[in-house]
Nucleic acid binder design. Structure first.
Lengths: 355, 355
DNA sequence: TCTGTTGCCGAAACCGGTTTCGGAGATCAG
DNA sequence: CTGATCTCCGAAACCGGTTTCGGCAACAGA
């Protein structure tokens, strides 16, 4: 008996502290402790403080899945990756996850990740995560116009936050980088170097960012008093191959551009190849400026001048916004933006005319 | 009252089906249903079948966090990323997550991801995930000799599975790629092209894979009857910069190698640079063969010959192994390996002697 | 002093499962 | 036919929280 008691107390010792332990230590009931922890108005300020302090000293943290059984929420953020999506997000994935994780864990939340390789699969993932209560809301990376995820979550009244913006903003919280400002500044930077004939290589028009970046390009051209040659505006380039293809089109134009603005770094690296094939040297014969800040840009020859995005910060802020959204805040108040950082690495130079 | 009833039934309709619903539909108690679902021996075969069929037709799935309150397990796998780790894993992160997610969801499990940027932070992450019951076990990518994660989880008796192998295998389940076979085959491939003077560029020796790959290199050399020149064996190269540095050492050797085997693709890309600086053409003046199968290898000039790892499959198998481990299987039976796939892209060629 | 609020907390039900315990009925040996 | 054993299931406690409801005490107003 002495043995079994010892064994029991040993187990007791390693047992995690529950709400009952806190209640007992304070001489209160667990219902009072619960309401105090959750800030109910019918618990006096003094008691709330006492409870919170005791909880802290006893190192008590309510078990999320024990709360979930009643509240339905497990303090976890959901992220569904889409593998069919182009590679552009992959270099940032680790940073993005780090940001999300940091933002979540700073509030004692966690991150549930799933991956899907088809559209139907994605819908399934959202639904099963919701069904099992594995996610209280979702982060939607790289949103699109008429995004099916937005449609789904809206109709199901599930909280979400977009990495992107759109006009149809009902119920939408978001964080986004002002890509339009970056594109405008890119143009102005080139103009300051004397360029007048500037091409634009956009990404996939189905994404929310593409029209915005195009608008920014147009704004820059307008501010500089330059006319936009439709021949020099292309779209749908998100990979190196894409970039090489559209780069060829631009460079083979009868009157080729002296500079190119790319909405996506990978496309710019494709432009590099198209230029190399034609014996054009960057930045001597062609200036290239892009957007994203992928690590490969550092290693390119010449290193790519670009507008870098702080993906980790984006993740952190998205996590914070989503938590607030889940807690019931109005999405209208949950919309933030930030600017990309200009990183001048040397792929732009003074305008010259080709022989 | 009619209204409230209607409202109620509307809510009832959208309410998720619980164990009570199943019990009621069968005229059993929920305890019987629970034990039937969990395969208890004191429930007759006939009843077990009846219950399982009814559960399936009613689309009933027990709420993981409701079970967790009693069992302590939430059917979720944990993954703690280490950002301080070198970049080599990043190109594969999406694939890896996809595999883990696929393996987990095929058994109705989920994946909880956290990120840490320091060692202490990592320990914290493990402990808070465990404390909150957000993970029943962990996948440990890129394990090291005397890995602090292994030590921690072993002592805490928490299930884990390693992506890697080690001698001190007590309590260790793992999946790993036979990097030693790849390195051996790499040597033999070069030998078949006439190479005799072959260098080796290893990764960080703190990782479990490094000694193994070195052993494979030695085995290949031995099989070919070649002697290993210690001058041509280097280590600690996991990035492009590392590769360039050690590549310089090798290529500046009085009697430089005609071929180099790299344990890591990134290092090989660094070798490319060191060779380019010296005006050496690959594969004419130098053959390079590596390991990993990173996407950048495809785009390199020339495309990199390598042993590609199916990272997605690795993730899937690790998830499956971990689930079995958590369910109580003996880790000794949970050790699998697979082979890397030789991808001949053209960075190796016949041996020539430099002028 | 009596009544009506108000502030504050305890008691108990509840959430959706799991697990222990005990007992009814069938089977079997004597 | 009786008693013991075995099968199989129901009843109820339990897990760690949340939430509803009611009541006691203090306080206000008269």
């Amino acid at each position: 008996m002495g043995l079994s008691t010892a064994k029991l107390s040993a187990r007791e010792a390693r047992r995690r502290v529950t709400i009952n332990d806190v209640a007992e230590a304070l001489g209160l009931t667990k219902s009072t402790v619960s309401r105090a922890m959750n800030g109910y108005a019918d618990i006096s300020e003094a008691t709330q403080l006492r409870v919170r302090r005791m909880a802290k000293t006893m190192n008590y943290l309510p078990l999320s899945h024990a709360q979930a059984i009643k509240t339905g929420r497990t303090r976890s953020l959901g992220l569904v990756l889409q593998l069919s999506d182009h590679d552009a997000q992959r270099p940032f994935l680790a940073e993005f996850l780090a940001g999300l994780s940091a933002g979540a864990s700073s509030e004692s939340w966690t991150l549930t990740v799933a991956a899907s390789d088809s559209h139907d699969d994605m819908i399934q993932m959202f639904q099963s995560l919701l069904r099992d209560g594995k996610a209280d809301g979702f982060v939607l990376p790289r949103t699109m116009n008429d995004d099916p995820r937005v449609k789904l979550l809206r109709e199901a009244h599930v909280p979400f936050v977009m990495y992107g913006r759109q006009d149809n903003s009902e119920g939408c919280a978001w964080f986004d980088i002002l890509g339009e400002d970056a594109m405008r500044d890119a143009v102005l930077h080139l103009v300051s170097l004397g360029h007048k004939r500037i091409g634009f290589v956009n990404g996939g028009m189905q994404y929310n960012y593409a029209p915005l970046r195009y608008a920014g390009f147009l704004e820059g051209m307008a501010q500089a008093g330059l006319t936009v040659d439709p021949d020099l505006v292309t779209e749908g380039a998100v990979t190196i191959e894409d970039g090489k293809r559209v780069g060829s089109l631009l460079l083979d134009h009868p009157v080729p551009p002296t500079a190119v603005v790319c909405a996506v770094d990978f496309a710019a690296l494709g432009i590099y190849r198209a230029a190399a094939v034609r014996g054009l040297s960057i930045p001597r014969d062609l200036s290239v400026i892009a957007y994203d800040g992928i690590p490969e840009g550092v290693h390119a020859q010449p290193p790519l001048t670009t507008f870098a995005v702080d993906t980790r910060d984006a993740g952190m802020r998205l996590a914070t916004l989503l938590i607030r959204r889940i807690r019931g805040e109005d999405p209208v108040n949950l919309r933030e933006t930030a600017k990309a950082t200009f990183v001048d690495r040397g792929s732009t130079g003074p305008a010259t005319t080709r022989p």
